[in-house]
């Protein structure tokens, strides 16, 4: 599992770098697909099998196909021009990103989340105890557990989500059908 984690981390960081460094947006989109697959591997390592499947189907399938459709629709082979009016912002942008990374690293180095759960279900060197009762139904990340939670505690947000998707569909149709002079 640790080996899988490190291999996936290298692929994820390299593909993420390529997303923002490739000049052709098509290549950026394809590297983003690789990045999404890495996240699906992370979800499987984190015991979230349902989310891994949803990640591949929704993100790598639906959303990236939409991106590639729009990319090829607009102007195929389009690249960013050589002269760069934003070049004076590049150095501050890199500095800002380094600051964000430093702040996140400091926060992560100070937090107590170094616990690992062993086979007996106890947290080794961690801060969060696990209760040993009320383990009904499936475990963490099972489809049955997700459905159980989604249709009981989170029923109202789930219904709101359907309304949100309906509104997004309506908005896209309205924006696409508008006539331009």
């Amino acid at each position: 599992m640790t080996v899988a984690f490190w291999i996936t981390s290298v692929v994820a960081v390299l593909s993420g770098l390529n997303v923002i460094l490739q000049r052709n947006p098509i290549y950026s989109a394809l590297f983003l697909v690789a990045n999404f697959f890495c996240l699906a591997v992370y979800y499987i390592l984190l015991n979230a099998q349902f989310l891994a499947a949803v990640q591949i189907i929704v993100y790598a399938g639906a959303i990236m196909v939409l991106f590639l459709f729009v990319l090829t629709l607009l102007s195929p082979g389009r690249e960013e021009p050589g002269d760069d009016p934003l070049s004076r912002f590049r150095i501050p942008a890199v500095i800002l990103a380094a600051v964000i990374a430093a702040v996140l690293a400091v926060v992560l180095a100070q937090n107590p989340l170094h616990g690992v759960v062993n086979k007996a279900g106890q947290v080794v060197d961690g801060s969060c105890p696990i209760p040993n009762a009320n383990h009904t139904g499936g475990g963490l990340g099972c489809v049955s557990t997700i459905g159980d939670q989604l249709f009981s505690i989170y029923l109202f947000p789930f219904e709101i989500t359907s309304f949100l998707l309906l509104l997004a569909m309506l908005g896209a149709v309205v924006l696409a059908k508008r006539k331009f002079s």
């Binding site: 993420g16 997303v19 992370y42 996140l104 690992v116 759960v117 499936g138």
Partner: peptide
């Protein structure tokens, strides 16, 4: 919830995933 069967051998620590998440978030912001 418990972790279910099969998911409890040699787990990667939570901090490692948080560090990867921070790196990816920084790349996105950049």
């Amino acid at each position: 919830f418990d972790l279910g069967s099969g998911g409890s051998t040699a787990l990667v620590s939570t901090s490692s995933f948080l560090v990867v998440g921070a790196i990816l978030f920084t790349l996105g912001a950049l």
